[in-house]
Design a protein around this nucleic acid. Sequence first.
DNA 1: ACCTATAAATAAAG
DNA 2: CTTTATTTATAGGT
Lengths: 187, 187
Amino acid sequence: MMIGMKKTSMGRQKIDIKKIENQEARRQVCFSKRRTGLFKKASDLSILCGAEISIIVFSPAGKAFSFGHPSVESVLNRYIEAATNRGGVTNGNRGSLLDNGHGLSREYTNLAAMLEEERRKKAALEESDGGRGSGWMDLVNINIEQLGLQELQQLKKKMEDLRNSLLLTESRAPSASAMSTTQYDNM
Amino acid sequence: MMIGMKKTSMGRQKIDIKKIENQEARRQVCFSKRRTGLFKKASDLSILCGAEISIIVFSPAGKAFSFGHPSVESVLNRYIEAATNRGGVTNGNRGSLLDNGHGLSREYTNLAAMLEEERRKKAALEESDGGRGSGWMDLVNINIEQLGLQELQQLKKKMEDLRNSLLLTESRAPSASAMSTTQYDNM
DNA sequence: ACCTATAAATAAAG
DNA sequence: CTTTATTTATAGGT
């Protein structure tokens, strides 16, 4: 830089890592730039080290963006599988459902409680249906309290398989990295 | 820096973004450093902009690491919900199952096909069971081909709800950011 | 794990 | 979107 030349920019300023509030524009710009940077870093990491990565981001406005290598779905599948095979994950997040480190009886309790809760939800749902339902759903209505641990585990696996086939089916030809800017309607 | 002082480091070197091979140690170090950096960037973004973020990373060795704000599970739930409500997502990834942009009849076809496949899987599973099963699973055995679109959609939703309650239940008290280094056994 | 020199990301402004 | 000045991330070495 030449001596005596006036600065034409104040350059990058240091900012505190705390929520940007009451500056809609500044926050939006920051989000866009940093989301781009984050996805770039993820891409670099996956290429350099051959790591599999999935990132999902919701903007403050509620738009969803995602990055995945080889794909979001394949990584989520692998994660869910790993968690399932382990019987749970311990990831440091407070309130994580997939809470590991319990014995079988505890797992049984949790499973039964969860299914019980689901049964309540379903009942409420069908009630709100105003009795218009054809009743076919009752076919899935198992008397959960009667089931043993092994059966609960089988049901769990079955539901996981079903969910996988419905939502998270293995992706095909996932050899390259992919970036995406999926946008749902603002929610 | 003092004049005449010898450089004690060659500083950061420029590297190409291509897979590091045949240098196990270098790749491992790179992975650790960059994973840390990636999670830091994600944390900064979530704090600065109030964004919700979930990151799942599998190391080349197969270890899983995750970051989530407010939690991995809550963001995955929101993502799956958003995809479900839309009837699918369009995320640029090749082979994505949640492929949107089709009419209802096409969705029906896909759903029926998926459930059909699931039926086959289940049959195979029960066969490998050697007939030891108590048969309770048949209660869930619906004649899928007979169902209409609306019923398939209800079944889909039901299965999603069940899966959510089994694996991705809403996390409690997820007000703060969380970093985690979940480790499964190498796979 | 820690250090240093340099590459890369990015805040503010145009 | 582009430029610029500065902060931040990190490759290689110890």
